[in-house]
Amino acid sequence: MKISAQKLCWSAGNLEIVRDVSFDVAPGEFLGIIGPNGSGKSTLLSMMAGIRKPLSGQVMLGDLPIRSIGSREIARSLAFVEQQAETAERITARQAVELGRTPYLGPLSGWSVNDDDIVDAALDNVDMADKADRLWHHLSGGERQRLHIGRALAQEPRVLLLDEPTNHLDIGHQIDLLELVRRQELTVVAALHDLNHAAMFCDRIAIMDQGRMTAIGKPAEVLTAETISTVFGVEATVAPDEDGICHVRFRAGGARRNSARKDAIS
């Protein structure tokens, strides 16, 4: 299922947070969004998920504007994993994943064996089956993050929106998780911070900078030393590695203060 943004804008008061962002994501494509803190990635994703109403512009899910689709219907084809979602409830790991079945259950239709199987598969998929009965607040940050992904998979979505999915994960689980997401062959839009991971896993990369999408394209086209320097204010060298994937190496002492960077732009 394809998803696209058409001239999306959002602002808080006078502050423009997302400015006129448009792009298409093809079915089965993995799009990475990179950009500095506060550049509007999370805001953009929550508009794509239909949770935040754009000030202007619209999101198309498949061939329909997302605001014309019922929220349950959306949740059956699109799953969104927030950057931070915590709970004080004493729920277990399994119960957290079971929440993913919510869009399929009505007030009168009960939990079925099929739902159990889907939850089992999701737990397996994120490597948490053995910890299914642990309490949420006894789990590590990375384990919680994997459960959020598991919950999203239990929604059986066709589009997956991930906001910094590899937060808190150790390097092994970061790679595992991105590989896992790739394997599902879903349409994926993910905000990522690690440029090398973005290069490894994404079909295309988009850059957000101060609310604008300043570039979108194949990793090798987008990840250049100049772009990285203007957007992040960090000196880097980019070279293709032996697999032909572009590899970013940062240079120590290359970081410029944000103010210096703003001066450089203006």
Binding site: I51, A85, T87, A96, L99
Partner: peptide, 24 residues
């Protein structure tokens, strides 16, 4: 209240998470 039990469950991770599970 019983009619909304699943919606109430979905609030465990906050309003945004509930919304993304299809809760109005």
């Amino acid at each position: 209240c019983l009619w909304h039990v699943r919606a109430l469950d979905a609030f465990a991770f906050g309003n945004q998470a509930a919304a993304s599970l299809g809760i109005r």
